[in-house]
Amino acid sequence: MPLAEIPLCVWRTRSQGFTFRGQSIRYWTAGQGEPLLLLHGFPTASWDWHYLWAPLTQRFRVIACDMLGFGDSAKPPDHDYSLMEQADLQQALLAHLRIEQPVHLLAHDYGGSVAQELLARHHEQRLEVASCVFLNSGLFPETCRMLLAQKLLLSRLGWLIGRSFGRDDLVRNVTQVFGPCTHPSESALDDLWSLVAANRGPRVLHKLINYIPERLAWRERWVGALQRGGVRLRLITGVVDPLSGAHMLEHYRQQVPEADTVALQGVGHYPHTEAPVQVLRHYLAFRQQPLSYIPQKVAWS
């Protein structure tokens, strides 16, 4: 049975706000139980999780925010955005909500790098992470691939590319990374563009894109956090994703001891919107495993 969609107009009415380092951040929280922190990708926002939101809130206390520079949160034009600061933001949100117990992470794309930093902080005893599941994330910079638009945003003309970035550009780039039969509707694309365009978002895209070289700079720290053990991990991957699909999945198996992976056939870069029922099933199965569980090498779906 398909999962119910939460329209963006409804999603926005449910947001709350807090201030992080002088900037307005929009966040969502619902449900009871163990805290589950959802971390969205680039260049979208927390609405990406809307298919999974209701079933997850029936089981956990679910928390998500639009990170600084994304969605309906502040997008200061002269700010130096970084994944490190986004990890600080997540910890500030947990503190704002007075959550002190171990937190579970579910992360996609850009959010996967933020989750890696949170895992590193767990190993430094600065945060307690109970588990982490990644969806199509660029966890290893040596295997990351980029779209032409990303390369242009990283160039000296990136500021100009960002300022001229429009809905058609978003559609052209987003549809390249979906599965052949799982493309978003025109209505969904309108909503994605609304989130990117909010608060004059295109003018900061060339600053947000610096997460790509930042991944390389922190490669040893963040890959080491995956390899260290002590926290249960799973990677769920839409294998036809050209950015972080089958090739990233294979590299993860080679680099992470006793890698727990799930391959979603025919699914691209956004498995939580392309195949939310499958993602939910594999996530809940992961959470139901006993702590002594020894992961299998691979699961197929």
Results as ranks from 00 to 15, higher is better:
Leu148Phe: 11
Val231Arg: 08
Arg228Gln: 15
Thr261Pro: 07
Val223Cys: 07
Leu189Ile: 08
Asn210Lys: 11
Trp218Tyr: 14
Met146Asn: 13
Arg167Lys: 10
Arg203Thr: 15
Met146Asp: 10
Leu148Val: 15
Gln176His: 09
Ser194Gly: 11
Ile161Thr: 06
Gly166Cys: 14
Pro271Ala: 08
Thr175Asp: 05
Val223Ile: 14
Gly245Arg: 01
Trp222Tyr: 10
Val196Lys: 00
Tyr211Pro: 00
Val171Trp: 03
Arg163Ser: 12
Phe178Ala: 00
Glu258Asp: 14
Lys207Phe: 09
Leu189Arg: 00
Val177Ser: 06
Leu154Ile: 01
Asn199Phe: 01
Asn210Ala: 07
Arg215Ala: 06
Leu153Val: 01
Trp222Leu: 14
Gly245Cys: 02
Gly238Arg: 02
Ser164Asp: 08
His206Glu: 04
Leu235Phe: 14
Pro213Asn: 02
Ala246Tyr: 11
Tyr211Arg: 04
Leu157Phe: 10
His269Pro: 05
Val262Asp: 03
Ala275Pro: 10
Val196Arg: 02
Arg221Thr: 09
Thr175Ser: 06
Tyr270Thr: 13
Val267Met: 04
Gly229Trp: 02
Leu216Asn: 12
Arg215Phe: 10
Ser187Gln: 15
Arg219Ala: 15
Leu264Arg: 02
His251Val: 12
Glu220Cys: 12
Gly238Gln: 04
Leu216Thr: 14
Ala197Ile: 10
Leu235Gln: 02
Leu189Phe: 00
Leu195Glu: 10
Asp169Phe: 06
Lys207Gly: 07
Val204Phe: 12
Ala225Ile: 04
Val240Thr: 11
Ala149Phe: 12
Trp222Arg: 12
Tyr211Gln: 04
Asp168Gln: 12
Leu152Ile: 08
Leu264Pro: 01
Asp191Thr: 03
Leu152Asp: 00
Val231Glu: 06
Ser155Tyr: 09
Gln255Glu: 13
Arg200Val: 09
Lys207Cys: 08
Gln255Val: 14
Gly268Gln: 03
Ala225Ser: 12
Val256Lys: 02
Leu235Asn: 07
Pro271His: 05
Leu189Tyr: 01
Asn210Val: 04
Val231Ile: 15
Val239His: 10
Val171Gly: 02
Ser244Gln: 13
His251Ile: 11
Met146Pro: 07
Arg203Lys: 10
Gln150Thr: 14
Gly238Asn: 01
Ser187Leu: 15
Arg163Tyr: 14
